[in-house]
Write a protein that binds this DNA or RNA. Structure first.
Lengths: 174, 174
DNA sequence: TAGCTCATGTAAGGAGTTACATGATTGA
DNA sequence: TCAATCATGTAACTCCTTACATGAGCTA
C-alpha cells in the first residue's frame, strides 16, 4: 500500500490541504496512483496520528480547512520505504479477460468497447505529450527533474502501447 | 470485478476442479488476472449458487474434489458481460511512487530494488517468448487462437517495456 | 437568507490478502 | 499407522468504492 507514501511525497513537493491533494491526485500523481478524497482524508488523519505530518487550521477558508506539512519523522519514513523491496505489480487486466471470453463465446459487441477505450488512451497520450512539451523541453539536467521526466515517459509509452493494442484487437475482431 | 467471468471462461475452455483452476491461475490466466485458491473456491460456490455452473463430486480423488462445468445460463452471462462497457484500467504503480519519492528524499537503495525487478521482468519475458515459439509458430489462422496470441503479445510488450524502464531508471540513479 | 460550493468526514459493503483449519488419500 | 500432501474451506483484516452527511463561507 503506497498511498501514505504517495501523500508524503506530494506534501514534501508542496505542503497543502486535503482538497488540494485531491486535486493533484486527479492530475499529476493520479496518472500513476489513484485515490479518492475519502481515502486521502482518512490517510492524512493516520499520518498525523503517526507523527509523520503536522496539520494546521487555515483561518478565513471555507469549511475547516487544514494544511499539512511533513515532519522529519515522515521524511525518514519515506526514505526507509523507498529503499524497501518492491514486489512486481500484480496484474489485473479486465480487457484481457474479455478478449479471452470473446474467443469462447463471441462474437459480441466488444469492438464498440474497444473503440471507446482507444479514444481514451489516445486522449491521455496527447495530454502526456503536451506536458512533456511544456515541462521537459529542453531535457532537464538535474536529477529530480530527470526522474520526473522518466516517470512521464513511462506513462507515454504505456498509453501508446495500450492504444495500439486496442486497435489491433479491433482489427482482429471485425 | 472480473474473477467470476475469468472463471467462466476458464471452465468453458476446459471444465475442472478448483485446484486445477488454481493451477491455471498460476500460469496462463494468472498472467493477466491473478487469484488465490481462497478467492477461487468462494467464487465457484457463488457461481454455482447463481446457477451458472454445475459441480459434481469426483469419486476416488483426494479430499472432496468437485469438477465444474458451465451451464447455458453461465455462457449467456459471460457473453453479456463481454460486451459490457469497460472502464480504463485503474493504475496503481508503486515503483512510480518510489521514483518520485527518491526525487525528494534520495539517494536511497532503490537501485538494488530496480535490479531485482529487471531480472523478474526479463525472466517473465523469456517465459512468454517461449510460449509464443511453442504455441504460435506458425501464426494461427482461426479467430480464437489469434485472440489468444494477441493477448500473449500484449504480455510480451508489457514485460519488454517494463524491463527497459527499470534499466533506464537504474542508469539515471547510479 | 437561501441556496451553492468548498472542505472534510461517516457508513456500508465488496474484493483481495494472509493465516489458519479440516477431511481424505497416498506412501513410507 | 502416521506423516505428507491434496483439495477445500473459514476467519480476520485491509484497502477501496459508493453514497451520503455536515459545517462553514460565498453569492445572488
Amino acid at each position: 500500500m503506497s498511498l501514505p507514501h504517495a501523500l508524503l511525497t506530494a506534501l514534501i513537493e508542496r505542503p497543502g490541504a486535503g482538497s488540494e491533494l485531491a486535486g493533484r491526485f486527479d492530475r499529476s500523481i493520479g496518472y500513476f496512483w489513484q485515490a479518492t478524497h475519502q481515502q486521502i482524508y482518512r490517510e492524512l488523519a493516520r499520518l498525523e496520528a503517526a507523527g509523520w505530518i503536522e496539520g494546521r487550521a487555515v483561518d478565513g477558508a471555507r469549511g475547516r480547512k487544514r494544511t499539512y506539512r511533513v515532519l522529519p519523522a515522515g521524511r525518514a519514513e519515506l526514505a526507509r520505504w523507498t529503499a524497501e523491496s518492491q514486489e512486481p505489480l500484480p496484474i489485473r487486466d479486465e480487457m484481457m479477460v474479455r478478449l479471452r471470453a470473446e474467443a469462447v463465446v463471441g462474437p459480441t459487441a466488444l469492438p464498440d468497447n474497444l473503440a471507446a477505450l482507444t479514444r481514451h488512451h489516445r486522449e491521455r497520450l496527447k495530454t502526456y505529450e503536451d506536458i512533456e512539451k511544456r515541462d521537459f523541453t529542453p531535457p532537464p539536467t538535474d536529477r529530480a527533474q530527470q526522474l520526473r521526466h522518466l516517470v512521464l515517459k513511462a506513462g507515454i509509452e504505456y498509453e501508446r502501447q495500450r492504444a495500439a493494442f486496442c486497435e489491433q484487437a479491433m482489427a482482429l475482431l471485425s
